[in-house]
């Protein structure tokens, strides 16, 4: 049976038809064609599908689509404003924190969730925040350095 699901995606209200067994990842990728959350394992173990739900990181592959009704979902598509990259995006790019790029959107959102709550995290706090996102290229050191650079204020938000 299909249900109308309404939620807020990257600041915009959306309505979409969804089955009860559809995951948020299914709805984002297969129905809304929001492609930054990646399908890596379908069971919450890799982190490539991480999105923010009301500002908190969640696995979109483990989130029932219908359960996000009325809530706010953010993907990497919602990060850059008017073409201006988010500080984390610039820092990831300049620190070579993305190799193949498949884990990158999830990794950036995991880092964003941390910095939004804790703008000046310790090394351990950063490692803890990103340790749920597997990267087989092994970019962890570069991701750490990128997040540290943002936390130090080296990538101030570009004012419009």
């Amino acid at each position: 049976m299909k249900y109308i699901l309404s939620f807020v995606l990257n600041g915009q209200p959306v309505d979409v038809l969804a089955e009860p067994t559809d995951t948020l990842l299914d709805v984002l990728r297969e129905k809304l064609r929001v492609m930054s959350p990646k399908r890596g394992c379908d069971e919450g173990d890799c982190g490539a599908c991480t999105v923010l739900l009301n500002g908190e990181p969640v696995r979109s592959c483990l989130t029932l689509a219908l359960s996000v009704a009325g809530q706010e979902v953010m993907t990497v598509e919602g990060l850059s404003k008017n073409g201006k990259l988010h500080p984390l995006q610039r820092a990831f790019h300049e620190h070579y924190a993305a190799q193949c790029g498949f884990c990158t959107p999830g990794m950036i959102l995991a880092a964003k969730a941390l910095l939004d709550k804790n703008p000046h995290p310790t090394r351990e706090e950063i490692v803890e925040a990103i340790s749920g996102n597997l990267c087989r290229c092994g970019t962890y050191q570069e991701v750490l350095e990128a997040v540290q650079a943002v936390a130090r204020g080296e990538y101030a938000e570009v004012k419009e």
């Binding site: 990728r29 297969e30 064609r33 492609m35 930054s36 959350p37 990646k38 399908r39 993907t75 990497v76 598509e77 990060l79 850059s80 990259l85 984390l88 995006q89 610039r90 990831f92 790019h93 300049e94 070579y96 993305a98 193949c100 790029g101 498949f102 990158t104 959107p105 950036i108």
Partner: peptide
């Protein structure tokens, strides 16, 4: 020099094969 395709990676614009829908 940062990656040629780095902006695509950090914005999620890089198109991987599973991102293709016809």
């Amino acid at each position: 020099i940062p990656r040629y395709d780095g902006i695509g990676h950090v914005t999620g614009r890089t198109t991987f094969v599973d991102d293709i829908h016809l």
